Measured scan of single mutants.
Amino acid sequence: KKVTINGVEIKFNNPEEAVKFALELAKRLNLRIEFHGDQIKIE
């Protein structure tokens, strides 16, 4: 399963991993996060 985070394609074994990764990243950098299907936007 491929997920695009800020235009960067990252391959994950499952979608939950991708979501956890994105949330952790957003929390660490104190950023806002948006989900659009397989696209995750962090700003």
Rank of each mutant, 00 (worst) to 15 (best):
I5D: 00
T4W: 14
I40D: 01
F12S: 02
E17Q: 10
H36S: 13
F35C: 11
R28D: 08
V3I: 09
K11C: 14
E17W: 13
L29F: 11
N6Y: 11
A26Q: 03
V19K: 06
A22M: 09
F35H: 04
K20F: 09
F35G: 01
D38W: 09
K11T: 14
T4D: 02
K27M: 10
P15N: 10
E16D: 11
A22P: 00
N6P: 02
E43M: 14
H36L: 14
K11Y: 15
A18H: 01
E24T: 06
D38E: 08
K27Y: 12
R32F: 08
Q39H: 14
I5R: 00
N13Q: 12
E24H: 05
K1G: 13
E17N: 07
K11N: 13
V3R: 00
N6A: 08
F12G: 02
F21D: 00
K27V: 08
R32D: 05
F35L: 06
E34W: 09
L23Y: 10
A18I: 05
K11V: 15
V8G: 02
K27I: 10
A26P: 01
F12R: 02
V8Q: 08
F12N: 01
I42D: 00
L25I: 12
N30Y: 04
V19Y: 13
A22F: 11
A22C: 04
E17P: 03
L29P: 07
N6M: 11
E17M: 08
H36Q: 12
N13R: 12
P15A: 13
K1Q: 11
L25Q: 04
L23T: 09
T4C: 13
L25R: 00
L23M: 10
F12K: 00
K41V: 15
A26T: 04
I33H: 00
V8P: 01
E24R: 07
K27P: 02
A22E: 00
N30C: 10
A22V: 13
K41I: 15
G7F: 04
G7T: 03
R32S: 09
R28V: 10
G7V: 05
T4R: 03
T4F: 15
E43Y: 15
Q39E: 15
V19T: 07
F35K: 02
T4Y: 15
L31H: 02
K2S: 14
L23R: 06
K1I: 15
R32G: 04
K41G: 02
L23W: 07
L31K: 02
N14S: 14
I40W: 04
L25W: 09
K2C: 14
L29G: 05
N6I: 06
V3K: 01
I10H: 12
G37E: 11
I42M: 08
F12M: 04
H36Y: 12
E16S: 11
A26V: 06
A26I: 06
R28C: 13
I33S: 00
K27R: 10
N14H: 09
L31E: 01
A18R: 02
I33V: 14
V3S: 00
L23I: 12
I40Q: 01
A18S: 04
E16M: 12
A22G: 02
K1T: 15
I5L: 09
N30T: 04
K2N: 11
I10F: 13
A22K: 01
Q39F: 14
G37I: 08
N6T: 03
L25G: 00
G7P: 02
E16K: 09
F12I: 04
E43N: 12
E24A: 12
I42W: 02
V8L: 10
G37H: 09
A22Q: 00
N30E: 07
K41N: 12
A26Y: 04
R28M: 11
F12D: 00
R32M: 08
N6C: 14
E17T: 07
E17H: 07
E43Q: 12
L23D: 04
I40C: 00
I5M: 05
K27L: 13
V3N: 01
N13A: 14
K20D: 07
F21S: 02
E17A: 12
K41L: 14
K20W: 15
N14T: 15
E24V: 05
D38A: 06
Q39Y: 15
I10G: 00
E24L: 07
E9Y: 06
I33Y: 04
I40A: 00
K1E: 06
A22H: 01
F21G: 01
N6D: 08
L31F: 06
G37F: 09
K27W: 08
T4G: 01
A26G: 06
V8M: 11
K41E: 05
V19M: 14
N14D: 11
K11A: 12
R32P: 06
D38R: 02
N13L: 12
R28A: 11
E17D: 13
L29N: 06
R28S: 10
N14K: 08
L23N: 06
K20Y: 09
K20C: 14
R32W: 07
I5P: 01
N13C: 10
I42A: 01
N6S: 06
E24M: 07
K2F: 13
E43D: 11
L31A: 14
L31W: 11
F35D: 02
L25T: 05
A18Q: 02
K20T: 07
G7S: 03
V19R: 08
D38N: 10
N13I: 11
K27E: 14
K41Y: 14
I10C: 10
L29H: 10
K27Q: 12
K2L: 14
D38F: 07
A26E: 03
F21M: 04
L31I: 12
V19N: 03
K20H: 08
E34N: 05
L25A: 05
A26R: 02
E34D: 07
V3E: 02
E24K: 05
L29D: 04
A22Y: 08
D38G: 07
N14F: 08
I40G: 00
K27N: 12
D38V: 06
L31Y: 08
E43R: 08
E16T: 11
K2W: 14
F35W: 13
L31P: 00
N14E: 05
V8D: 02
K11G: 08
I5S: 00
F35Y: 10
N6E: 03
P15K: 09
N6G: 10
N30G: 11
K11W: 15
K1H: 14
